[in-house]
Design a protein around this nucleic acid. Structure first.
Lengths: 201, 201
DNA sequence: TCTATAATTAAATATACATTTGATTAATAA
DNA sequence: TTATTAATCAAATGTATATTTAATTATAGA
C-alpha cells in the first residue's frame, strides 16, 4: 500500500475542510494531525505532503474563512441602495455564510487566538479582519451622514454587531426552531432598529 | 527547600486566578500546569495539592466566572424598576464585571468548550448558563408584556445580546479610547434602542 | 513500455506534558 | 517539646503527538 488510485486521491481543499471540522470539534490544540488525516482517510504523515505544518494548516483555514465572508459581504455591498438596505443585506449574507460554513467560521472565531502570537501571521490576520470591519463601518457611517441612522459610536457599534454575528456560530443548530434565514432576519432587524433615529419609524 | 513560610503560602483562589490568566493567554489546552504554577511561584506538582487535575482547575475557573456574573446581575435585577431600567442596569453591570475580571470571563467564553464533552460537567455548566440567560429573558419578556418593548423573538434577542457582551472581552483593552463605563453605556443604549416600539422615542 | 514524479504509508524521532511518588520542612496543636 | 499535618519540591512515569525519514506504488508523459 502506498499511492492510492487516482479517484481516491485527496485534494488540498478537502484537507483544509477536514481540518476545520476537527478544529471545530476539538479546538486547534486539541486536534491531532492524525484526527485530521483520518477525516480524509490518510495518515498523519501524508498531510505534510500538502501543508508544511499544523500551524500552516490553521492559517489556511483562517484565511479561507475570512476571505469567504469578506467576499460575500463585498459582493452584496456594491451598488447604491440606501445604507439601511445595505446593512440589512450584509448582516443577512454574513450570517447565512457562517451557518453554511460553520466549521470554518467557528475556527476563525475560536482558533485565531492560537496564531495571534506568531508575528507576521498576526498582522496578516488583523489586516484581513479590519478589512471586513471597514465594510461595515463605511455603510454605517454613510447612513449616519445621510441622517438615516442615529449617531452611534461606530467603533463600538461594529464590535457589538460582530460579537452578535460571531456568536451565532456557537449556538446555531441545524434543524432548530428557526431557519437560518429567519435568524438572520431577526438579528438584522435588531440592529436596524438600534440605528433608527429617535422619532423615526 | 519544601514548605514555605506561612506568609508566602499560596491560597486556592490565587491558583484559580493564575489559571485564569494562563488560560486566557494560551487557552486551556495550550496552558501547562507548569505555566500556571510558575504564575504563583510553585512547581507543577504542587498544584495537585489544591486541585485533583487540570480539568478540575478549569471547572473551578468556569464556575467562578459564571457565578460571579450571575450574582452581580441578580443583585441589580431586584426591585421593581421598569424593565428598560433593569435591562440597562444589568447590561452595564455585566460588562463592567467582565472587564473587571477579564481573565476569568474570557476563560468562561473560550474554554468552556473544552469541558462540554465531559458529561456531568456539561449539564452543570449549561444549567448555570441558562440561569443567567433566564434573568435576561424575564426582564425582556416583562418589558414586552408591558408594552415598553417591541415584540422581538426573545430567544434570538438574548443570544444576540450575549454574543455582543461576550465579545467585549475579546476586543476590550485597558486604556483604550473609551472607559469601561462609556462602552457599557453605549452598548446598553444600542440594545435598548433595538427594543423601542415603533413610533416610540 | 519505461521513467520520473506524485501520493502515500509505516515506523522512527524527539519532545513535551499531566500526573504520581517519596522525600523534606514549616506550622500548629497537644 | 514533640508529634502531626500541611505545603512544597525534585525527580520519575508514561503517554501522546508533531514531525521526519525511507520505502512503496500509482499515474502520466515520453
Amino acid at each position: 500500500m502506498a499511492r492510492k488510485p487516482a479517484d481516491q486521491t485527496v485534494h488540498v481543499d478537502e484537507i483544509l475542510y477536514a481540518a476545520a471540522i476537527i478544529f471545530h470539534r476539538k479546538g486547534y490544540q486539541g486536534a491531532t494531525m492524525a484526527d485530521i488525516a483520518a477525516e480524509v482517510n490518510l495518515t498523519a504523515g501524508s498531510l505534510y505532503h500538502y501543508f508544511p505544518s499544523k500551524e500552516d494548516l490553521l492559517m489556511a483555514v483562517l484565511d479561507a474563512g475570512l476571505s469567504l465572508i469578506t467576499g460575500k459581504v463585498r459582493d452584496v455591498i456594491e451598488g447604491d441602495d440606501p445604507p439601511a438596505d445595505k446593512l440589512r443585506a450584509i448582516i443577512t449574507i454574513h450570517i447565512l455564510s457562517e451557518i453554511d460554513n460553520i466549521h470554518i467560521a467557528t475556527a476563525v472565531i475560536f482558533e485565531s487566538r492560537a496564531l495571534l502570537e506568531v508575528p507576521g501571521v498576526r498582522e496578516q490576520y488583523i489586516r484581513q479582519r479590519d478589512t471586513l470591519e471597514r465594510l461595515y463601518r463605511d455603510v454605517i457611517e454613510a447612513g449616519i451622514a445621510a441622517g438615516d441612522f442615529r449617531a452611534v459610536d461606530v467603533g463600538i457599534f461594529v464590535k457589538t454587531l460582530f460579537g452578535a454575528l460571531n456568536w451565532v456560530n456557537v449556538w446555531y443548530r441545524e434543524g432548530g426552531r428557526l431557519s437560518g434565514a429567519e435568524i438572520a432576519g431577526e438579528i438584522a432587524e435588531t440592529f436596524l432598529h438600534a440605528l433608527t433615529p429617535a422619532g423615526g419609524a
